[in-house]
Amino acid sequence: MEPLRTRTAFSRRQRGGFAIFIVILVSIVLSVFAVILWSIESGSSHETELIIEKKQAEYLAKGAQQHALLKFRYLPTELYDAVAYSIGKNPYYDFGRPLKAGGALDSLLNPGPMFFTGTKDPLTNPAAAAVPIINRSGDNIFAPPSGVSGFPSSGTAEDQMKYLLTFYEADIATDYPGGGKDDSIVVVTSEPHNDIAMGAGWRDPFFGSYVVESLAILGLTGGKLYDKDSILLTTRGQVYQVFNNIHQISLVTDESFGATGNPRQLTEGRRTTSTAKFGAHDFPELEQSFEALSDYQNRLSTARTEIATGLYSVSRQK
């Protein structure tokens, strides 16, 4: 009966331990699936927090648009003159009068649509043929008065042509005029401060700012109108998770989730990352690591920026 015993023994060795093999296989598959799921969820929650910060910056940029529109409404002529000057356009040009009909005097009385074109000062050189005040592409010709702060003292003539516009844009911003929370009008900071709008001891939920990024005239070359024009206003909003140790805070919830203590900080914690790898005995392992402290601090102090744009028509009304 030798062959039977041999076959039985062989069959038993063939079939022994097969359940364990299947369980191990299933376990590996489940582990990999769980790690993938974990990694995906970690990434999406981080993205949500980033989107929230950018949305906060977006609404500051939109608030800047409202601030600018308010000023445009009340100072439209000053806006028109400022944008006209910035491109060398004469805001007073009168189409009804011929150019140079009266000779040199007339060229001064009605210098034409563009007066930032030449190099000669007519007041010192009345016989100058060009109608000119500044060479737009050249260097500064006229020395600015000394000791006058805010007046551009260097740069190209084109830079200096923009100084009316620079002044016009300057106060459409947070942290103006002083630059800090104690000597500025519009301020967004979670530090306690005397807010002009909200009162003494106010704290905003976060530190942020807005400013006019650019105010550009959109007239086409050769097709500009001389009593009105289109401008593109671009404003920028910025928000920080942490700025100079100023965290994002809740205005209504304290650290103990009550309503009487210090404001709860809403700053995101350090992130954990999970990576799958094959460890000892080729079993899958989940390795978790905390975000490095320096990376964490760097991430929190990085500004989130958003831009808002608007197209508006402006005309001279005086």
């Binding site: 000023k71 009340y74 100072l75 000053e78 806006l79 003159d81 400022a82 805001p91 007073y92 040199a104 005097l105 001064l108 009385l109 007519p122 007041l123 009345p126 100084y163 009316l164 002044f167 016009y168 300057a170 106060d171 005029p177 002083g178 000597d183 009008i185 519009v186 002009i196």
Partner: peptide, 25 residues
């Protein structure tokens, strides 16, 4: 009161009288 309230800053647009042929400001 530029330090206490929202104000609107601008640069007026002055001009020089055109009596420049006689160079008489």
């Amino acid at each position: 009161a530029i330090a206490k309230e929202l104000t609107f800053c601008y640069v007026p647009n002055p001009y020089v009288p055109p009596d420049a042929v006689a160079a008489n400001h």
